[in-house]
Design a protein around this nucleic acid. Structure first.
Lengths: 234, 234
DNA sequence: TCTACCTTGAACTCGTCGGTTCAAGTTCTT
DNA sequence: AAGAACTTGAACCGACGAGTTCAAGGTAGA
């Protein structure tokens, strides 16, 4: 930790080391902020975690506030991109709807349940009164961008006859809720790490309930049919 | 603000004023903590908000930490009691299941959406790493007590043939998720105050989806029947 | 080799906050 | 009236943290 500047980055162009240090500072800042909150974190600790001197931190990102903003938005963008990518990949390429939805649910659940995601959520919720503009970076400008994208996909599935719903945005909202709610609850606000098996259980349960509510009439026979085995994914 | 000690509390019995002051301090502490977080809040401000001198605060509740704990648990207990009371009142006394569930959902939604509740949630989420034991006060010792109580009620409804489910705890978890998820999302983490009409819409939508998934086969005709008007409660 | 930029560690300023002390009331009890 | 308990304002202390300054290197490019 104290030894920085891996020699591999030496022979590069001038500003290569700078960029590495900036990234290290941002990463360290997120770690320390996530653990202590904005007020509780001190810049000395961030500098130490980044393996960098304190003036260097102020040299790269002037304020503690801007440091906070940048470190948050950096991971928020990565997180949002992952969620969106998972949602965009929801297609019915001839396959089963339940399978596609379960796949999506599992990917989203793993994202939601990750340490980075829960730390990010905790931080933003905690400091939303001090930094209200961070909501836009994490969720999107006006409404939740993940829900929007999911609503688009669900609407196409409904048009294709694979689903049965009137309000795709409402259905998307509830799909996300069926996932994130239990994850938040069981992980006790991100305190307890959820095993992958538990995430699978939550995802399967969410999809089961979702399809019971919004499954297409064609596949309705599943409702009274004997349930698929519950714990694991087949 | 600077003028303290409303004369109305003067002529009481000796310890009456103490209790009033203690309560005022706890209330003020919650307000200030909710707005600034644990580290961000300073005792001077709490004392000022309570209309009380700073030593009085330390006289009643020694530490800043114990002050925090007490102010949080006080609010949390009231909140939890309200939720539990709402859940306990879920009975099917001959009436319609949808009506009873909608009633419950609306009461819970109004609780969730209140300023106190979202502030409480924000605070606990923010400081859960510093005060992990507060989760027990807010949620219950091991699992969410509201979900437990709701699971009991749902199980009885299922036994009475009004609902159709295998895992009442899972159904309860999802019912709560269908409520709290959209409320959290639409209120933007408690930043925006939700109008009562919006809360009604969320409650009705949650119950609709829940009954589509777990409604008893007897009332299944509702699934393809024309929807009830959506915005308001009839 | 020279120069310009970065980094580093340490010290420093300045403000704030948690917590205490104290003398001077104020109110209730006896 | 006497005394106990509580409150108050103000001052005080020690600690700590944000942000700056500075002299001493280090490194890259010309």
């Amino acid at each position: 930790m104290t030894d920085t500047a891996a020699p591999s980055t030496r022979g590069r162009t001038t500003h290569r080391g700078r960029i590495d240090k900036r990234r290290a500072i941002l990463d360290a800042a997120f770690v320390v902020f996530a653990q202590a909150g904005f007020e509780g974190a001190c810049v000395r600790k961030i500098a130490a975690e980044a393996g960098v001197a304190k003036p260097t931190v102020y040299n790269h990102l002037g304020d503690k506030e801007t440091l906070f903003r940048h470190s948050i938005t950096a991971v928020a963008e990565r997180e949002l991109a992952e969620h969106l990518e998972a949602v965009e990949s929801l297609v019915t390429a001839g396959g089963d709807v339940r399978e596609a939805l379960t796949d999506l649910a599992l990917r989203l659940a793993r994202n939601f349940g990750s340490d980075r995601a829960s730390s990010l959520r905790r931080l933003v919720v905690a400091e939303v009164s001090r930094f209200p503009e961070l909501l836009d970076a994490v969720w999107g400008p006006r409404t939740n961008r993940v829900e929007e994208a999911l609503a688009d996909r669900l609407a196409r599935l409904a048009l294709a006859g694979c689903l049965n719903m009137r309000e795709p945005v409402e259905a998307a909202e509830q799909f996300i809720a069926l996932l994130s709610g239990p994850i938040e609850s069981r992980s006790r606000f991100g305190t307890r790490r959820l095993a992958d098996q538990e995430l699978q259980g939550i995802a399967v349960a969410a999809v089961r309930t979702f399809l019971r509510a919004f499954g297409a009439p064609a596949t309705e026979g599943e409702r009274s049919a004997p349930e698929a085995p519950r714990g694991e994914i087949t």
